[in-house]
Write a protein that binds this DNA or RNA. Sequence first.
DNA 1: CCATATCGGACTAAAATGGTCCGATATTAG
DNA 2: CTAATATCGGACCATTTTAGTCCGATATGG
Lengths: 147, 147
Amino acid sequence: MQLTVATEYAVRCVLHLAGATAGAVVARREIAQARAIPAPFLAKLAQRLAHAGLIRIQAGARGGYALCQPASQITLLAVVEAADGELVLQPCAAKPQACPRSPACPAHRVWAKARRQLRATLAHVTFDQLAAQEKPPTRTRKSAWTS
Amino acid sequence: MQLTVATEYAVRCVLHLAGATAGAVVARREIAQARAIPAPFLAKLAQRLAHAGLIRIQAGARGGYALCQPASQITLLAVVEAADGELVLQPCAAKPQACPRSPACPAHRVWAKARRQLRATLAHVTFDQLAAQEKPPTRTRKSAWTS
DNA sequence: CCATATCGGACTAAAATGGTCCGATATTAG
DNA sequence: CTAATATCGGACCATTTTAGTCCGATATGG
């Protein structure tokens, strides 16, 4: 019952992008170095984030990663689920036969509730908030997110 | 990010004991059969539960397991943590250096909050509630609830 | 065209998980 | 006391997941 380091890395990565000039492409290597993420692993991870529509990947010379949306619209939940897969507590989620047989396990509704709570909590934290917390001294010099 | 089947089994096991006559010793085999738990695995699991002070193990002939406390005092959280270890979300929980270096990761307070919520939710569900929910449909023939 | 830099998939190593086995020990029945 | 029962508790094993690497293919900028 733990989030994986992939999640941790994903958060760091998006956090880094959220701190960069809006929409700017940042090289993989730069992110990896700045945030202590093994570069090849970040590559793999980035694909999951891209697949989820969170970041845009630019291949080729001067390539790298950039956010697809303003940081204010990217939730922690979205990043967590992009990295780790859907957030599910129930151990028997995949198995339809659920608990033994007869009694619809009474714990299930508790799992479901806990899951809803957890997802809600993560869903209403956005990366502009996180980025702001991370760099209190830096006065947003040119955060012209003109839209 | 999922609870393990060990957790699922543990819940089933305690649920079974909660449904039995209060304080009665139930044979491992009986629990295993009734709740579809591999018996040898239940043995291992039971030790964790016993170590956590949730159940009492009686060795020898006519041995088995029994609750140490009334079901009303056993929370879902206690069982989950006994089976799975402490409930921690932070990927970098064990690592003191936390996030890279400088910026105390702003996500951490979110993980912490989510964790508190989750634990609170599980902590205020007790096994007498769960057992009660389980029983109404299941007319256990010998449910001598004579206490 | 060429250097750069990512894609994306195959691959490996290590850890966690789920599960089994068995000798030792405890308890009860006779 | 002894035999039968039944768990302990730790070693052991198989599978899956996780973390991480490597490399040929492909895309891009200059």
